[in-house]
Write a protein that binds this DNA or RNA. Structure first.
Lengths: 238, 238
DNA sequence: CGGACGCTTGATAGCCTTCAAACATAGTGG
DNA sequence: CCACTATGTTTGAAGGCTATCAAGCGTCCG
């Protein structure tokens, strides 16, 4: 049961009981991916719809020479992709920690959204949210310095996790290597390491054993110039 | 008549005559913006739907300290925004050259897409295309160097303009200042100037008087590591 | 003609990368 | 149980790409 996905849609729209049941039926299979596993490879043929049930994953695109850039993170409730412009997916998805994914038929899913106004609107809002986050990532790597980028990444992650009830008390699971942070912030591993040490020394935030602890949210958000507006979370979630 | 918009949707789906007529009616007002004008300001309240009829505009987000980052360009047929998560838009839009925009009621527009499957599917594909382009921009500023970024920007622009019949013979209108290129590539004006001079010296591409001339497409695309797959244009458009 | 704007150039500085290597931890196989 | 390997983290030194600062030039326009 893709509860997390239904919950995400319901953060945008009210679903009918029928719609909830349909969604439950549409995602039957599930599969667990270990840390570092490829959930989706770039240019894979589309296999069906998928939604993250638990864990954290990263969506990435890469260059021919092996360089990689994460373009967003997937949290519980997020779709692996929205569809459907070509036969092949345009981004890869990599599991950070252990990640559980529910799968369903793409056609069945498209039919569901064509027949249920609530699902269609929920999907529409979900993709708009993804688009807004994607643009913020462009701003992040384009116009913030290394410290701000990393701090912003952490602020975003904590805010999004809080919104789905997966983080509180300024702590959350962050099973992500410094190399992955580098590929998210457009930096090198070495530099990420140095910046993280500075953030730890300044007692703003620390990442240890896959757990991130924010010691001074106000100072961290300030350094990151973090404004959660772009996440378009409902008031209650902030 | 938002012909360009209908054409864009029809590059993805077949619209019925009824749908075309409805779209024509939905965008009645039109307005022209001079070079540099703000078509939409960040955090503006949403005013209605808008679609670019002619010209080029840039979608941007900015930081408190005045830094700005363009997150994508709007060409004829592109919507100013897709909707609808909060009362305020999350990106500004600035006219580069003289830009004509058609406007319509947002509610009427949403109703149209709720009632017409073709329009809904076309919109869905349009937003997926925007999302893919947005992710490519993140990759661009995150993992390419200055020369590659600028070259990639130009390759993208030429490819997209060609697809809508607004460019050919390796020339196109590019009424964009070096400062705007800097804000698109995450660089400074000074550095953009130097890189453009190098590209001109190497006889790859030149931008003069608002017109961009690509002298050596193969070499330019090679330096940019440009692969148009992410644009999801139909075969015929490439 | 003065001012705004955009383009250009030079000098200097610095953020971040690159290169190289050491260290820690966990998993594997003998 | 212990080499042995792989992966991730950490540290140091050096270099380069890009930013910053400053100024000059050209053009357009009121």
């Amino acid at each position: 049961m893709p509860i997390s996905f239904i919950r995400r849609l319901e953060s945008f729209v009210q679903l009918s009981e029928h719609e909830r049941r349909s969604l439950n039926r549409a995602f039957e299979g599930r599969r667990t991916y270990g840390p570092g596993a490829d959930i989706l490879r770039e240019h894979d043929e589309r296999l069906g719809m998928g939604v993250v049930l638990s864990g954290v994953a990263g969506r990435y695109r890469s260059l021919g020479d092996g360089q990689r850039q994460f373009v967003g993170y997937l949290l519980p409730g997020d779709l692996l992709y929205f569809g459907a412009l070509s036969e092949r997916v345009d981004c890869g998805v990599k599991a950070f920690g252990s990640t559980v994914v529910a799968r369903g038929s793409a056609q069945e899913f498209m039919a569901l959204s064509a027949q249920n106004a609530g699902i269609a609107l929920g999907l529409w809002k979900a993709i708009i949210q993804d688009l807004s986050i994607s643009r913020e990532w462009t701003l992040n790597v384009g116009r913030r310095n290394a410290e701000q980028r990393i701090a912003h990444l952490i602020c975003e992650q904590y805010t999004r996790l809080s919104a789905i009830g997966a983080a509180e008390n300024n702590r959350f699971v962050m099973p992500i290597t410094q190399r992955d942070i580098a590929d998210s912030a457009g930096l090198t591993t070495v530099h990420v390491n140095r910046v993280l040490q500075r953030l730890k020394r300044d007692e703003l935030v620390r990442i240890e054993n896959g757990v991130c602890t924010i010691q001074d949210w106000a100072a961290l958000a300030d350094r990151a110039k973090f404004d959660p507006f772009y996440l378009h979370l409902s008031r209650s979630a902030l």
